[in-house]
Measured scan of single mutants.
Amino acid sequence: DKHFVVALYDYTAMNDRDLQMLKGEKLQVLKGTGDWWLARSLVTGREGYVPSNFVARVE
């Protein structure tokens, strides 16, 4: 069951495990537990961690 989110804010990666994203960017959540979610950008195809409070679910 795939679940998708949209970035509510720009996020600048703090290290090489984070995923940089721009407000409005759509992401697929690969692992969504805790404060940091592993996601893949549908724009760039890159994977990394994003802060869960920076994204909102897309139905």
Results as ranks from 00 to 15, higher is better:
41 S>E: 01
37 W>L: 15
18 D>N: 12
36 W>E: 11
55 V>P: 00
8 L>T: 06
18 D>S: 11
50 V>I: 12
31 K>I: 11
13 A>H: 03
51 P>I: 00
8 L>Y: 02
10 D>M: 00
48 G>I: 04
10 D>F: 05
28 Q>C: 08
42 L>N: 07
12 T>N: 15
14 M>L: 13
22 L>S: 15
56 A>N: 10
30 L>N: 02
1 D>H: 08
57 R>W: 07
54 F>P: 05
17 R>S: 14
21 M>V: 12
10 D>V: 02
18 D>L: 03
24 G>N: 02
58 V>F: 09
34 G>F: 00
52 S>V: 09
5 V>F: 10
51 P>R: 07
31 K>G: 09
11 Y>C: 04
48 G>A: 02
27 L>Q: 03
22 L>R: 15
57 R>P: 15
51 P>N: 07
53 N>T: 13
42 L>G: 04
16 D>P: 14
26 K>I: 04
9 Y>G: 10
7 A>W: 02
37 W>D: 00
58 V>H: 11
38 L>I: 06
18 D>P: 05
51 P>H: 04
56 A>K: 15
24 G>H: 01
37 W>M: 12
30 L>M: 06
22 L>F: 09
16 D>E: 13
14 M>Q: 15
16 D>Y: 07
43 V>G: 06
24 G>F: 00
28 Q>V: 10
12 T>F: 12
25 E>T: 03
26 K>T: 11
31 K>L: 10
33 T>G: 14
20 Q>K: 13
57 R>E: 15
58 V>L: 12
9 Y>P: 01
38 L>H: 09
51 P>T: 00
9 Y>C: 15
18 D>T: 11
40 R>Q: 05
28 Q>K: 10
43 V>P: 03
47 E>H: 10
17 R>M: 11
21 M>K: 01
9 Y>A: 15
49 Y>H: 09
44 T>L: 02
20 Q>G: 15
20 Q>P: 14
46 R>P: 00
39 A>M: 13
3 H>E: 14
57 R>V: 09
25 E>C: 01
13 A>D: 04
49 Y>W: 11
2 K>I: 10
52 S>Y: 08
52 S>G: 09
59 E>Q: 14
56 A>Y: 05
27 L>M: 08
15 N>I: 05
16 D>S: 12
6 V>L: 08
36 W>Y: 13
12 T>Y: 10
36 W>F: 13
59 E>S: 12
37 W>F: 14
16 D>G: 11
45 G>H: 06
7 A>E: 01
2 K>E: 07
48 G>D: 03
19 L>F: 13
43 V>E: 15
35 D>Q: 13
35 D>F: 15
36 W>V: 10
34 G>E: 06
46 R>M: 13
48 G>L: 04
23 K>Y: 04
16 D>Q: 10
10 D>Y: 03
44 T>V: 00
38 L>F: 12
55 V>A: 01
27 L>F: 14
8 L>V: 07
31 K>Q: 14
5 V>W: 05
17 R>V: 07
33 T>Q: 13
52 S>W: 07
51 P>K: 08
3 H>N: 14
20 Q>V: 08
38 L>M: 08
24 G>R: 02
26 K>G: 05
4 F>W: 08
46 R>H: 07
19 L>A: 02
46 R>D: 09
33 T>H: 13
54 F>S: 15
1 D>R: 11
20 Q>W: 06
4 F>E: 09
2 K>R: 09
52 S>R: 15
25 E>H: 05
14 M>T: 15
21 M>C: 07
55 V>W: 03
15 N>L: 05
40 R>Y: 01
49 Y>Q: 04
11 Y>A: 03
7 A>I: 04
51 P>F: 02
56 A>T: 14
11 Y>N: 04
15 N>M: 07
20 Q>N: 15
27 L>S: 01
33 T>N: 14
56 A>S: 15
9 Y>M: 11
29 V>C: 05
56 A>R: 14
4 F>S: 05
20 Q>F: 07
40 R>F: 00
54 F>N: 06
44 T>Q: 03
14 M>F: 08
34 G>T: 08
3 H>S: 11
29 V>A: 03
16 D>K: 13
3 H>R: 08
42 L>V: 10
38 L>V: 06
43 V>Y: 07
24 G>A: 03
22 L>P: 00
9 Y>T: 13
46 R>C: 11
4 F>H: 07
21 M>L: 12
43 V>M: 12
54 F>L: 14
21 M>R: 01
19 L>K: 03
19 L>M: 11
29 V>E: 02
30 L>R: 02
32 G>Q: 15
26 K>W: 06
51 P>V: 04
21 M>Q: 00
2 K>N: 15
12 T>H: 13
16 D>V: 09
9 Y>H: 15
53 N>G: 10
36 W>I: 14
31 K>P: 00
21 M>P: 05
26 K>D: 06
49 Y>T: 05
16 D>T: 11
13 A>L: 01
18 D>V: 07
25 E>Q: 05
29 V>Q: 01
47 E>Q: 12
26 K>Q: 12
7 A>S: 07
49 Y>E: 01
25 E>M: 04
46 R>L: 10
17 R>K: 14
25 E>W: 02
1 D>Y: 10
33 T>I: 10
3 H>Y: 12
17 R>N: 14
21 M>I: 11
39 A>G: 03
26 K>M: 10
9 Y>N: 15
3 H>M: 13
45 G>T: 02
23 K>L: 00
59 E>H: 09
15 N>A: 11
47 E>M: 06
15 N>P: 04
33 T>P: 04
31 K>R: 12
20 Q>S: 15
8 L>N: 03
18 D>Y: 13
16 D>M: 08
31 K>N: 12
40 R>A: 01
34 G>Q: 06
33 T>W: 06
44 T>Y: 08
16 D>H: 12
30 L>D: 01
22 L>K: 13
12 T>P: 12
6 V>G: 04
13 A>Q: 08
36 W>S: 11
11 Y>P: 03
35 D>I: 04
59 E>C: 06
10 D>R: 04
56 A>F: 05
46 R>Y: 06
19 L>N: 00
22 L>T: 12
43 V>T: 15
54 F>R: 12
11 Y>Q: 08
40 R>E: 03
42 L>Q: 10
37 W>G: 03
32 G>L: 07
15 N>Y: 07
2 K>F: 09
40 R>K: 10
36 W>N: 09
13 A>F: 04
11 Y>F: 11
14 M>S: 15
4 F>Q: 10
37 W>H: 07
17 R>Q: 14
47 E>N: 02
19 L>V: 02
34 G>K: 06
55 V>I: 08
45 G>K: 10
46 R>W: 03
48 G>W: 05
27 L>P: 01
22 L>E: 06
57 R>I: 06
10 D>A: 04
40 R>I: 04
43 V>W: 11
34 G>A: 05
5 V>I: 06
55 V>H: 00
32 G>Y: 10
46 R>E: 12
32 G>D: 13
56 A>W: 06
35 D>G: 07
44 T>C: 01
44 T>E: 03
53 N>F: 03
23 K>M: 05
35 D>T: 12
29 V>Y: 05
54 F>H: 15
52 S>L: 03
57 R>F: 07
24 G>Q: 02
56 A>C: 10
59 E>K: 08
11 Y>W: 09
11 Y>E: 03
7 A>T: 03
43 V>F: 07
57 R>N: 14
33 T>L: 04
21 M>N: 00
39 A>D: 00
3 H>T: 14
24 G>M: 01
59 E>L: 04
7 A>G: 05
39 A>H: 05
27 L>V: 04
25 E>R: 00
52 S>P: 06
18 D>R: 10
26 K>F: 08
18 D>K: 07
44 T>D: 09
9 Y>E: 14
10 D>T: 05
18 D>W: 02
10 D>G: 05
55 V>F: 04
6 V>C: 08
6 V>A: 06
58 V>T: 14
27 L>D: 03
19 L>S: 01
27 L>T: 04
58 V>A: 11
26 K>R: 13
29 V>S: 00
6 V>W: 07
17 R>F: 12
9 Y>V: 13
51 P>S: 02
44 T>A: 03
24 G>T: 07
25 E>S: 02
3 H>K: 11
23 K>N: 05
43 V>C: 10
2 K>M: 11
23 K>V: 02
